[in-house]
Design a protein around this nucleic acid. Structure first.
Lengths: 352, 352
DNA sequence: CTGAAAGCGCTAACAT
DNA sequence: ATGTTAGCGCTTTCAG
């Protein structure tokens, strides 16, 4: 028995039949600009309406005229900075008539690899991978392979805030400048007169965390103040990590007058711990964050932090991805950041 | 000239040729379970690897074996509660082997309609529409039409936190209980001894806002305290709205000892305004929010609010959507909420 | 201006 | 176990 399709779903031939024309004609009137007589066009349009017909986008795709698709692969869309990027990506994709697929990986390499392979099968125009990771040989190899595979089907890999690959890989990498952002921020804190500033960092092998930590160190060096290794703590980029680290620092009786957190979320956790300990910010201790997530200014006190143009990052990612030839070799963009001064950093007590 | 495809992209026939078998055989070994001799299988697998072949998912789709897709349409993925739902939707979609398309509408009806039509063309398994709106006849009509159109291609519309349609529409609607959540919250506030509680509401025609406002009113009624109409203000669900409304209330010299905001974002804005005015929460005035977004507990003081199971909402949405027959008529789920007591609500001064 | 037919890349029924 | 042949739903030559 020939697989007769569901009577509800009408296809181009149903429309053609109802309009008394050929499928080719229907395709033409729907296509837009091909010359068709008023008569026929009207009949076809009518049939289309009566049948509520829409051409199957997948069929169009394989015939070469589909809606292009873009994929956005990230760890967890719930993080405010990721959400901002997702927003940028989606908006820019829509602006360019692209559909936008999202995939969460929970930081799991297997899921990431599987998703990318699916996107390759989907013939996605580009796959945007976001979020820092450890920059290991394994990472480079695996990612290089994904880039090549994607390129082989005419797609393109975009790395956003991820370590770049070896030269020649068919990828676009877009980063924001973690090191100089952190440098500027810490310089600001030091300039207020602090000399013992606690750093609440991320995973030691995570490139984003590393960049920010380098900025912390270089700012000290630039000002000629030593960094006390005891003052740099490691955790991850979550609120809970900030909370835990801060409590521990307090319990350990660490000596500091300011704290710089690797992300605003970490700062939020730290702030709560500080409050719990009965410490006032910025009167007793200054606090700064990083990312400038929307909630930063609603913390109390409003958080001094580094603004990262996440939404723009997302937009740029799709723009350059779509602008590039698929097989083109690597390209590297670095977006700037700037510190935004709010109320959480003040000179230390003994300087007032 | 026959449209010879890009030599880089290899198709099933290239693989077949290289392995010295027919396309059908390749399809079979890739398909998995169909009997193929070890010999052939090995050769095919080899050819596949050498060519980095992946079957075109769109072609598979029209042949009837594609990866199903799910669409998530929302106003702005940047809002924390939306992000949470998006997370739930994406995770549950992935768990079920579905791809997840997201579309932002910026609250624009035109964009929404266009997206839904695109999804119909994509033959998405389901389209999940989220976020309250005004429940007008226009809304019902337009949405009913979308539901019918979707149903006509075997897809299904899911309304999440949106006003339900008239009976018989092929939709699934999943709501969270705004009214009783607000009722419980306001009852809690009143129970602390407050009798003049300011309500920072949303758009008067917005169903979510209405539900929460009804809860505010009914809680008063239940306790036999009159609501002063001057104490219910309208804005929208943003942080800025909360800030503005709160400032105005203060400037106008409104008399109240507690404020209940229609969302946590509104509460965050209000809290900032309160701080700016030198008022202490909860010592001078109590404050409560709604939604229990992740940042609620990092506000200072930690915000008493109503927990809405947003992630679960997303998961339930896809589960029921996928579980339902496409043309099935309406179904209505109501998810419960509960108040989470933190530090921002205390008895009023004169009660201590 | 319109239709017949070939093709896009894949799968499945039908033969061997 | 494998190849041949129809499809799937659409677009686009190629002929009129």
């Amino acid at each position: 028995m020939t697989r007769k399709s569901d009577p509800a779903r009408s296809n181009i031939r149903d429309v053609a039949a109802r309009a008394g024309v050929s499928a080719a004609t229907v395709s033409r009137v729907l296509g837009g600009v091909y010359p068709v007589s008023q008569q026929t066009r009207a009949r076809v349009v009518r049939a289309v309406r009566e049948l509520n017909y829409v051409a199957d986008a997948r069929a169009k795709a394989i015939a070469g005229v589909g809606t292009p698709t873009l994929a956005f692969v990230l760890e967890d869309i719930t993080g405010p900075s990721f959400a901002l990027m997702a927003y940028g990506v989606e908006r820019e994709a829509a602006r360019n008539g692209h559909l936008c697929l999202v995939c969460g990986t929970e930081g799991d390499v297997r899921q990431e690899t599987e998703f990318v392979e699916m996107m390759r099968a989907q013939r996605a125009a580009a796959v945007i991978l976001v979020g820092g990771t450890a920059d290991t040989p394994e990472y480079r190899e695996r990612t290089r392979r994904m880039a090549d595979l994607l390129a082989s089907v005419g797609s393109r890999l975009v790395l956003c805030g991820r370590p770049p690959l070896d030269a020649g890989a068919p990828v676009t990498v877009i980063e924001y400048d973690n090191e100089s952002g952190a440098h500027a921020l810490v310089a600001h804190v030091l300039a207020q007169g602090h000399s013992r500033v606690l750093f609440l960092g991320g995973r030691p092998d995570h490139t984003t965390a590393q960049g920010r930590e380098r900025g912390y160190v270089s700012a000290h060096r630039a000002r000629g103040v030593d960094v006390d290794p005891d003052l740099v703590l490691h955790g991850d980029f979550t609120r809970d990590s900030g909370h835990r680290l801060m409590r521990r620092a307090l319990a350990d009786g660490l000596d500091f007058t300011a704290v710089v957190a690797a992300t605003d979320m970490v700062a939020a956790g730290a702030l709560t711990a500080l409050h719990e300990a009965g410490l006032k910010v910025p009167d007793d201790v200054s606090l700064a964050g990083y990312d400038d997530i929307p909630y930063a200014r609603d913390l109390y006190p409003a958080l001094t932090t580094v603004h990262v143009p996440y939404e723009e990052l997302g937009r740029v990612a799709v723009r350059t991805a779509l602008g590039r030839a698929p097989g083109a070799s690597d390209e590297h963009l670095l977006l700037g950041t700037h510190v935004v001064v709010r109320d959480s950093v003040k000179p230390p007590k003994d300087m007032r």
